[in-house]
């Protein structure tokens, strides 16, 4: 089948969706209509883990998934969701273009039948959404903060001082409203889409995790394509990821203005104490050596960049 079904848990209002539309258009025009892409929003065909499983089974599907979800298959990919790993989009690109990363991707494809089309879909930095001002980890003591129910996230929130409380994203709004939880953490576009600004008063820009996703699909489907078609899909996926990330950046500026207009207090604290306390996550999850490797890699790229200027 020459159709690829791309699934995301996000809605059509999310900038990632615009990226997927670009991916669809580019694949369809470049392949002169021989390949087609269908986009499904709102997890219509299953949640992200379900979709990865379907791709493994050989269904012609792909999904926007974060590193944490892929970590059960390829442990190293889990580090992409760890706190304060990369500083910006440039560093992210250096990382996913590195031989280190393609080693992981190859292993994922051969061992588990999952193909990474591109891993440069940046959804924004995660910030703290609270009912009171926060300036240091100590302020988070005893605060029940909703986070994603995966080890990296739970460890990160715990290390930053709050009490991690996993809750379905759908229940975060009512949970905050009814004080089932005291706080949440999310990227700007996510909190905007879920209207969390209606139920919180403070945004603290810790940027503790860069939310990075990849377009991951069935290796069996990818291998059924001709070489030139494979190139078309890969190139489109990379360009679409870049485009979507740019959209996010533009969107975030607008959202921040709108939040201020609604009276939400936005604070930019010194992130050093949060960084310090989050370091323990790497040790706890066994990523300490890998973290050093990646920092060296990023440092080298930085130096090369500086010397070329």
């Amino acid at each position: 089948d020459s159709t690829l079904n791309v699934i995301t848990s996000l809605s059509t209002n999310d900038p990632m969706y615009e990226g997927l539309v670009k991916f669809k258009n580019q694949v369809e025009t470049a392949s002169q209509g021989r390949l087609s892409v269908r986009i499904f929003v709102g997890s219509q065909l299953g949640n992200d883990s379900d979709m990865l499983e379907q791709a493994m089974l050989g269904a012609n599907v792909a999904v926007l998934a974060d590193g944490g979800r892929l970590a059960v298959y390829q442990n190293e990919l889990g580090i992409l969701g760890a706190p304060y790993l990369v500083e910006d989009y440039g560093q992210l690109n250096v990382l996913v273009d590195s031989p280190l990363f393609s080693e992981w991707a190859d292993s994922l494809a051969t061992r588990h039948g999952l193909h990474i089309f591109s891993f440069n879909w940046w959804q924004g930095a995660r910030h703290l959404l609270t009912q009171k001002p926060v300036s240091a980890p100590a302020d988070l003591q005893g605060i029940r903060m909703r986070t994603i129910g995966a080890p990296v996230w739970i460890q990160t929130i715990d290390a930053m001082g709050a009490t991690p409380t996993p809750l379905a994203w759908a229940e975060v709004y009512s949970g905050l409203q009814q004080q089932v939880i005291d706080a949440a953490e999310a990227q700007y576009t996510g909190m905007w889409g879920a209207r969390l600004y209606e139920v919180i008063t403070h945004v603290t820009k810790t940027g503790h995790i860069q939310l990075i996703s990849g377009l991951v699909g069935s290796e069996r489907w990818y291998q059924s394509l001709s070489l030139s078609q494979q190139k078309i899909v890969t190139r489109a996926a990379i360009e679409a990821g870049r485009f979507a990330s740019k959209q996010v950046r533009a969107e975030e500026v607008k959202i921040e203005e709108a939040l201020k207009a609604r009276g939400v207090v936005i604070a930019e604290p010194d992130t050093t104490p949060f960084r310090q306390s989050a370091k323990v996550v790497y040790k706890n999850l066994g990523y300490a050596a890998l973290f050093r490797d990646i920092q060296t890699l990023l440092q080298e790229a930085d130096d090369a960049n500086d010397s070329s200027h």
């Binding site: 759908a170 709004y173 009512s174 409203q177 879920a194 209207r195």
Partner: peptide, 9 residues
């Protein structure tokens, strides 16, 4: 409200 991005309150 969640899926349609509408205020649940």
């Amino acid at each position: 409200g969640f899926v349609g991005n509408v205020s649940i309150g």
